[in-house]
Amino acid sequence: MKNQIIILAVLSAILCKYSPGQLSAQKILEKTDANIIADNKYFKSKMIIHSRRGSRTIVSQSWVKGTEKSFTEYLAPARERGIKMLRIGDQLWMYSPRTDRTIRIAGHMLRQSIMGSDLSYEDFMEDPNLSKLYNAAIIKEENYLNRPCWVMDLTAAIEDIAYYKRKLWIDRERFLVLKEELFARSGELLKTSEIRKVFKTGGRWYPKHMVFKDAMKKGKGTEIIIEDIRFNEPVDEYRLSRAFLKR
């Protein structure tokens, strides 16, 4: 009898620990962050911007170090080729070969769209560590794109933040955000993002094809397609410095 009680206790402890249903909202968010964030990351992506007059495709490659540093270089089309963007913490610089100038992007400019897309510089600057920035609550569980999801409400835990509230659909098995709605403090919907396709790389699930939509803009949104991604490859520190912008 004593042994049976011990076995039951051990089994309960194991079930509690590994049953996703038992995870707290904050814990789910931490696991979701951990899936996206890597020490070092390189990726090449294609951004298809659907505006009211047509579509444009912009190709870029980025090097990311943790959550603080990233470097992006635009490869196509010709007008954008050679433009570089460097983020260090909450500072952002842009270099244009046409003018041979490095310009700091600050203030109201951060809210402007990047290359006419549905993403702003502020989105680009955002700390991906949502668990540090928001308080989370699970509101329901439902299927999205045939995947079981937690639907979570996030409310900002800090004052200076671009989106006060978020609603996330997180894949319960892959810990990946499949859909997101971003709101202002007033409750107005500002942006949405949806994942159309995912893939498994380096032992983690990652978005392959995403669609962002600025709710304030007419148009069909901006698609981002990851063409190549490599995790934990060493990134040259020089590449993540302002001196490299002019190279």
Partner: peptide, 13 residues
């Protein structure tokens, strides 16, 4: 610094 008619980035001296 701004945007072209087609949404490209402009940096012009």
């Amino acid at each position: 610094m701004g945007m072209t008619m087609y949404g490209s980035m402009v940096m012009q001296n």
